[in-house]
Computed example of a mutant assay.
Amino acid sequence: MSTEPTSRSGSPAKSTKASAPARTDSTPVPRTAVALGITDPVEKARAELKATLAAIEEKTNVPKRVARSTDRVVADARGFARSNPNGAIAAAVGIAAAVGFAVWGIVRLYTR
């Protein structure tokens, strides 16, 4: 005789415990994606809601996006400075001159 709990109809009862989705590959699922192995409709809806909220957070979190962009630009600038130090010096002088010229122009327009 089976030791599995049965429903009133005699068929095996469904477990009320939420089981983790079975994944056959080892690649992680991004926070904004839903795993493919989910069969329970409630668990699938929860996973979709979680992924949607994560996507909204990624898109609307401006400080986090600015920090990532800043880190990327700084890393690119450091790489450029390592590979071409003279070009980095020339770029820094050019940027400083452009900023100085812009400030001078704004002050001159304001004082007229």
Rank of each mutant, 00 (worst) to 15 (best):
P12F: 04
R46H: 13
A51V: 01
K64T: 10
A91G: 00
S2A: 11
P12A: 12
I38R: 05
G10K: 03
A51Q: 07
L53G: 01
I56M: 15
A13Y: 05
M1D: 04
D71I: 01
L36W: 02
V93C: 08
R108C: 03
I106F: 03
V66P: 03
V74R: 11
S11L: 08
N86P: 01
A92M: 09
S11R: 07
R65H: 02
A47H: 04
D40V: 03
P63W: 14
P41D: 06
S2P: 13
Y110Q: 08
P41E: 05
S19M: 12
K17L: 08
T16P: 14
A91Q: 10
S19P: 00
D25T: 08
G79P: 01
T39V: 08
A88M: 03
A67N: 01
L49T: 15
M1H: 02
V74N: 06
T111I: 12
T52F: 14
A90C: 01
T111M: 11
R23D: 03
A96I: 02
A88R: 04
G94N: 11
T39R: 15
A45H: 13
A13R: 14
S9P: 01
T27R: 14
G94T: 10
P28T: 05
K50L: 10
P21G: 09
R78Q: 14
A54E: 06
V62C: 07
R68F: 10
V29K: 05
G100I: 01
T3D: 07
S83Q: 13
A22K: 08
A67G: 03
S69K: 10
N86E: 15
D25A: 02
I56R: 15
T39G: 00
K64I: 06
K50C: 04
R78T: 05
L53H: 08
V66G: 05
F101P: 00
A13Q: 11
S9G: 12
K44W: 12
D76Q: 12
T52H: 13
D40R: 06
P5I: 05
A102N: 02
R31A: 15
R78V: 11
R112M: 03
T3G: 09
R8P: 04
V42H: 14
S7E: 13
G37H: 07
A91K: 12
V62D: 11
R23T: 04
V99K: 12
P5R: 08
N84V: 00
M1G: 06
A45L: 14
Y110W: 11
A96E: 13
G100S: 07
S19G: 08
E58Y: 02
S69D: 15
V73T: 05
P30M: 04
F101K: 04
K59L: 12
L36Y: 00
E43R: 04
E58T: 04
S11H: 10
D40F: 06
R23W: 00
A97N: 10
K64M: 13
I106K: 02
S9E: 06
E57L: 11
R23L: 12
V42C: 02
V42I: 09
P63V: 02
P63M: 03
E43Y: 06
F80I: 01
L36D: 09
A51N: 02
A75M: 05
S69A: 15
R31F: 08
I106G: 02
R68N: 09
A90Q: 13
V103Y: 09
L49F: 10
T70E: 09
R65M: 07
T24D: 11
E58L: 03
